[in-house]
Structures are given as structure tokens and as C-alpha cells.
Design a protein around this nucleic acid. Structure first.
Lengths: 248, 248
DNA sequence: TGCACACGTTGACTTGGATCAAAGGGGCTC
DNA sequence: GAGCCCCTTTGATCCAAGTCAACGTGTGCA
């Protein structure tokens, strides 16, 4: 599946989104709100937007005005250096928020790209702040989401700063597994939506190194991989690999 | 100066802090607030706390209840892996906030250590959320601060994921310089408050590599270093080193 | 249906930074 | 103000991951 060129202009669906009918309430912004409060959220979440695989949700440098909740699909965010080097800063799945990077300067500081055909809910940020001033639970939950992002980033820094290639990949697979589980999917079997190069960029490795690590895991019976299809065969083994520094 | 053992119990000063008298208003939480609003902040910022060099402000695993603004001094935050590996996740100076990591789970996820004798203002988080619901400017500024932390973390991920040792050190020195400048200090001359090992941990390098990179910069006339004293002699040179990948 | 072409795997070789080791310098502490 | 300990520097060697290259493979479009 090659990256398609954008086939049609960005389609801003006018279909009203309704958090109150959404099956992602338990992992998305409405978490912990009463029924009445969720209905207030409904008014705020202005529209859904569909994106084709390869399409940008936003780009670094664009004005920030809203955050987005992934309704379906899969995204990556990345930052670019002038000389062309790319760092993938995260992969986002259903129920996760995108665009938090734009709040600080009101200009997006990274790119957000759909890795498969996807749909997001647009949440105008000024509305979110307004409603947060009314609904304490929403305010607190939003703060938790931002803080969770900071904690996640620290985890990635730990990974990039101290772990060896195979530890990094093990951590990555376990993290995906755990997030799929939270969404009701199999913890042990899933399709990767990103290329080896994107995984490598996220993990601070070259694609060849990622590929070799996959092969090694397979040889050792930890996983079964075929292209983008991954089956985890030995979760404890992967965990052990992640935490026990072989040297010293 | 060896790390002193804690000589005396934690001293919770009862001296009332007053944002309205503080010369850090322009870079700290009160940014953009009216005089009346800053006085409301005064009531909230409950107390200052003094820390000796080497003392922990909080530790991973402890209950979270407040965030802290650095009033004077210098801090590092770090995360530890079970096997003892450490990653320094940041260095905080005057006017910067500490403790944002604790919001998500209400348990701190990292350690915060004073790298010199320091003083912080304690801001009970529930009070901050309360006042944020009243004062829109404060709410928005707080969101910006959290978002800025996320953007900063992405920058570190880029550094750890794609840069070579000397690029990392150059980026680090330029970042310090810029932050000292924002605080009215010399952009070109400063004392490092952290060891080579701590710099290395932050940059994903070993202390020997950091030391060698310092020596190399000195040979090339980019900086003058003696122990913890650094003078930047050629800022554009450092910037060039940071952005222009030598290979390909 | 078949043919590109992007993606993935594997092998051979190189290299930047880690590791190991040893010696010098500064500033607390006694 | 002497001594010690930690921090830093520098050198020699090693190795994990990067680089370069060539060959499979699957899938989306003509």
C-alpha cells in the first residue's frame, strides 16, 4: 500500500458528533463525567473529520485552535530537523488526544499523520477551557491526560537514553499490547500500522536494526512476526528482556 | 562538595510567600495576571520550602498533592529502572514548575533533587485547579506551561533519537544559555550545577563521552571550560554543529 | 492479472561511543 | 591546612548498532 497522494480536499464532515453515544467514553475525554455533563460535551465537540491514510491532521507551523480525539484509526506524530532528520514522537490510537503540543505557543510544533483511514473528533480548545471552568471533573481529567503525556514522554526518554535495541523493541511491543488490551483487542495478536522505519524512528534505531531485532525475537520464540502481523508468544520473556540489563 | 547526608529534618518554612512581591512574576505562574489576580494567587501559595543541595523535593512513588515553583536554586528530575539505570529527564531553574508528573496518577513518577541549596514555593494542586476555574488567564497560562513541557520533551526525544554526541552537547549548552539569558544572566558564561555524569544521563551519553566532547569544543575554540565553569566563545559555531549533519 | 514499487530481510563491514583503566585536581571535612 | 574523596580528564580497546548493498515479498494500481 503506497502512500496515496491526497485524492480529495480535506472533508470536514458536518455530522454532529455525540460523546453521549460514543463507545469510547471510558477511555476518552468524557471519562468520569455524569450523563448531564457528557451532554454538555456533545455541544462542544463540533465535528468529526475523516482522514485518508497518509493525510496530515495538522502540520508543524500551523495555527493551533483545537485538540482532536481519535475516534477510529491510527496516527503518528513526528518532528523534523532542518537537515531532514525525523523523530517520531508518538503513535496514537482510539480515544487518545492529539494536538496538545499546540497549546503552548498556539502553533503546532509537530506533524500528525494518519497511518490508516481514520476519524477524529474536533474539540475547539477555547470551548474545552470554558467547559473546564464549569465542570471540575472535566478539568481534572484533562489535566491528568496532559500529565500522562508528560510521564509517557519521560518513559520514552528513559528508553532512548538507556536501553539497548532489543530492550527498546520489547518495551514498544509490550506497550502496544497493553494499549490494545485496554481497547478490548487481543493482547497477543495485532497488526502494526507503521513501517519498520517509523518504529525505528520512534525507538532511535535504524530500520535494519528493528528488522533484525524482530527476527531475533522470532528465533528465540518470543514472538511470531510476518510483516506487519505480530503475535506475542512469551510476554514474561519480553518483560525480562526489557528490565534485566545483561552487562554489569 | 560531596553529597551531604540530610543533616536536619525537612524544614517547612512558615514564611508566607507572596507572588505579588516576587521578581519572578514574568517567568513564573503569575505571568499575565492583573494585580488583583496575583493577590489571589498569594493566598494559594501556601509556603516556601528550603532544600539543601542533594535533598529530594519528592520521590517517585510518593503521593502527589502540590506542584512547586523554583524560587531560587537548581533541580534535576530523574527516573529509575529496576536494574538501577537512571535517566535524568530535566533540569529546572528559577521560575520553572516541578511536579507536573504527579497529576496523572496522583503519585509522583520521578524524583526531584536539589542540585544546590534551593527554595521552592508550594502550590497545592487542588487550590490551583480551583483558582484556574475562576481566573481564565491563570487557567490558560497553566495549560501553556504543561504543553511547553510536552514540547520540550519532544525536543529531548529528537536529541536522544537522532543526534550524535557533540550535537547533543551543543544543543544542551545552547539551551542552558538561552534559559540563563531569559533570567537576566549572561548568555555566554555560567556555572554548571550538575556533574558530567548527570549531563551524560540527560543526553543519553556516558560521562567520559561528555568530557571528551567538552575537550573537543575547547580545542576548536567554541567554548572555554574549566570544571563546572563554561564560557561560550562561538555561539553560531555551536548552532552550526547542532543542525548540520556531517554525513550524507 | 500482472507489474511496479515500497517495504522488509539478511549479510558484510565500519564506526561512534561504551568500557576499562589510570592518573590529576578541587574543595569539604576534620 | 592536610588529607581524602569525588569529579574530571585522557588513553587504549571493544562492541552494538549504523552503513552499504543485494535480494525477497506483498499489495495496490493500471
Amino acid at each position: 500500500m503506497p502512500n496515496r497522494k491526497v485524492v480529495q480536499p480535506i472533508t470536514l464532515s458536518v455530522i454532529k458528533t455525540a460523546c453521549s453515544n460514543c463507545n469510547l467514553q471510558e477511555i476518552c475525554l468524557p471519562l468520569g463525567l455524569t450523563h448531564e455533563e457528557v451532554e454538555k460535551l456533545d455541544e462542544m465537540v463540533s465535528a468529526r473529520r475523516r482522514l485518508k491514510r497518509g493525510e496530515h491532521l495538522y502540520r508543524a507551523g500551523e495555527a493551533f485552535s483545537a485538540i482532536y480525539a481519535v475516534r477510529s484509526g491510527f496516527f503518528k506524530t513526528d518532528v523534523l530537523l532542518e537537515d531532514g532528520r525525523e523523530q517520531v514522537t508518538g503513535f496514537q490510537m482510539t480515544g487518545e488526544l492529539l494536538g496538545l503540543d499546540g497549546i503552548s505557543t498556539e502553533i503546532h510544533s509537530c506533524n500528525s499523520v494518519a497511518l490508516e483511514d481514520s476519524e477524529v473528533c474536533t474539540i475547539p480548545f477555547s470551548h474545552l477551557e470554558g467547559l473546564s471552568r464549569e465542570i471540575q471533573t472535566l478539568q481534572h481529567h484533562f489535566h491528568k491526560v496532559m500529565s500522562r503525556e508528560i510521564v509517557r514522554d519521560h518513559g520514552v526518554m528513559m528508553l532512548l537514553g538507556t536501553m539497548r535495541a532489543e530492550e527498546r523493541l520489547a518495551a514498544f511491543l509490550l506497550n502496544l499490547s497493553q494499549r490494545f488490551t485496554a481497547r478490548g483487542y487481543s493482547p497477543a495478536e495485532f497488526y502494526l500500522r507503521m513501517t519498520r522505519e517509523e518504529i525505528g524512528s520512534y525507538l532511535g534505531l535504524k530500520l535494519e536494526t528493528v528488522s533484525r531485532a524482530f527476527s531475533r525475537f522470532q528465533e528465540e520464540g518470543l514472538i511470531a512476526v510476518q510483516q506487519k502481523h505480530v503475535r506475542i508468544l512469551n510476554t514474561p520473556g519480553l518483560k525480562r528482556l526489557m528490565n534485566h540489563h545483561t552487562r554489569e
